[in-house]
Amino acid sequence: MKISFNINGMPQSVEVDGNTPLLWVIRDVLDLKGTKFGCGKAACGACTIHVDGEAVRSCSFAAKFAEGRDITTIEGLSAGDELHPVQQAWIEEVVPQCGYCQPGFMMATAALLEKVPNPTDQDIDDNIVNICRCATYYRMRKAIHRAAEIKNANS
């Protein structure tokens, strides 16, 4: 079926089986490889994107539900060359190790900061529930607080 949506601010139409997980449309049809496959069962969060601003695990989100929605992936998180506060904070705190899960974490964090501009440690524990096998959680927590600071200073 034909599915039309906006992705990273650009209108896009694809012709796919509507039950295909949006993850594979993003990765293999649109060739945006920043969104990662981890488990295919919405259990790890590596595939987290934004659908109308909400964090969504795209491996378990059928492409047909993307019709008419605004999709953002890690490639669209920054405004051109200017990195999003979450990305800036991730660089300042030198968070990534292998880096594979990090786009998912950054997307989840960016969505959290829209709702909770100054997250407490408890907010972070409750909302950031992705999996990082390199276990970069310690720096990630610092980076989330730092991202909130940068974002609040900018606005």
Partner: peptide
């Protein structure tokens, strides 16, 4: 020294085996 791969890893650059095409 900050990791050399920091930027690639925060912008989601296609650098992993699974990203290869």
């Amino acid at each position: 020294i900050p990791r050399l791969d920091l930027r690639d890893k925060v912008i989601g650059a296609p650098i992993f085996g699974m990203d290869a095409t």
